[in-house]
Design a binder for these strands. Structure first.
Lengths: 237, 237
DNA sequence: GTAGATGTAAATGTGTACAAAAAATGAGCC
DNA sequence: GGCTCATTTTTTGTACACATTTACATCTAC
């Protein structure tokens, strides 16, 4: 996207970031500093910086003295993330309706075409990532750097959520047709319709959460709640 | 606020953070790693982590190979920040109306009393900081960690903006009466009124921006634009 | 006298060694 | 046989040294 020279941190950061979003790194995976250093051929210093950044975006959880793991949002956290996205996406959508020029509309279309191609060829990981990048591009077009930065964090977390809660569910995440509809509304500068479409779009994520509710496999507490009600103590693992 | 054991990074981070918010560090100030290390009695490693975090929150600007300086938002950036705050504060306000219990209402009142005390005794820096912490407490009560994290960044930037654009202006930032009004609305769970008050509250920040428009002293280009039109070159200092 | 180049000083970027903490292993005991 | 506690091993936290880049000043050429 941008031809600027990237620092080593950035490269490592993006690799890990993409790996998480494309589900090559499952939620909960331990991220060992030395191993990563070996893999990327850099010292722990660089890895640490990249992990710190991922930690700030909450895509990985940094536990003091205990290292970093890929975040695995709970159902509650997932709902909070989607809520925050509603808030931001509404504002972004309105700004895009006001600001987007023909050139940017075309850019958006091209991105959704790429997304479509990925899903068609079965590359889910890249598809999910491009789907997220679509929303990031919207935030860029909105021309509000703080919102963009927050959106970045939320989009990553959303992808993580989708990765976590959609396993086994019918693959209904091929939302590129909704993206095309959105672009239409932007082109017509129809704020109300665009916002309505966007909210509907987010509804779909939330629905997946409700579906995945009982099937949630990482939430041991929920699964073994019947056991825990017998024994008084609540063991950690 | 929280009695957990803080890491060294956190301590340094908070000290610099507070210093910026209380205007003891002016926008544009260079933050030398070694000097800071000497001051806090830690190595550059720690300083670097703290600066990276401040950089992520955009309270300081990290220029590759050129070190960190305290951010000095332009007028445009300031407006974007206030816009983002409107978006977040609206959501937070509504959530607080839904969630706040009597205990939290009292906590809010106590904080505003402290704020009032600071302004009364003339401690502007601490007052501005407490005023910001009031809004952070709201985000906490809203029980949405992602919004809280974003709010944190926005509130710091807002304080920076106030620090930068309010110099010389009549000190109208004693907004604690508005805070009390807000708390009333929360207690009555009056969403509409609370949101209206909050937007009004943010209007005040934005007004200061418009006032400070021409008086902006850090923007040398604007101040010396007449000089520059005579001499072709634009000297740095 | 000015523009450009070159050398020097200072600050940042990175790797690595050592210290401290947590996890894993194994011995001893009930 | 299972449990607890001590020891070992692994992993993270911190400091520091060296490499690289940048800014500044001086010098030279025109």
């Amino acid at each position: 996207m941008k031809g600027e020279k990237k620092t080593q941190d950035d490269v490592v950061y993006e690799h890990i970031f993409d790996a998480i979003l494309e589900q090559r790194l499952a939620p909960g995976t331990k991220l060992n500093e030395e191993s990563l250093g070996d893999i990327f051929g850099v010292s722990r210093t660089i890895i640490r910086r990249a992990l710190a950044r991922l930690g700030y975006e909450q895509v990985v959880v940094l536990r003091p003295n205990r290292g970093a793991v890929v975040a695995s949002p709970s159902l509650d956290e997932a709902r909070q993330i989607v809520f925050a996205r509603r808030v931001v996406e509404k504002a972004v959508t309105e700004l895009v309706c006001e600001n987007a020029d023909a050139n940017q509309i075309e850019q958006l279309k091209q991105m959704v075409r790429d997304e479509q191609a990925c899903f068609d060829r079965g590359d889910l990981g890249a598809g999910i990532r491009l789907s997220g990048e679509f929303h990031l591009l919207l935030a860029e077009i909105a021309r509000n750097p703080p919102l963009l930065s927050f959106q970045r964090s939320l989009v990553s977390l959303s992808s993580l959520i989708i990765a976590q809660f959609e396993k086994g569910t019918a693959k209904s995440h091929c939302s590129y047709d909704e993206h095309f509809e959105l672009i239409d509304a932007f082109a017509k500068r129809d704020k109300e319709k665009a916002v309505a479409l966007m909210m509907h779009h987010l509804d779909h994520i939330e629905e997946k959460l409700n579906l995945g509710d009982e099937a949630e496999e990482n939430d041991l507490k929920a699964i073994f709640s019947n056991v825990m009600s017998r024994k008084q103590s609540a063991p950690q693992a």
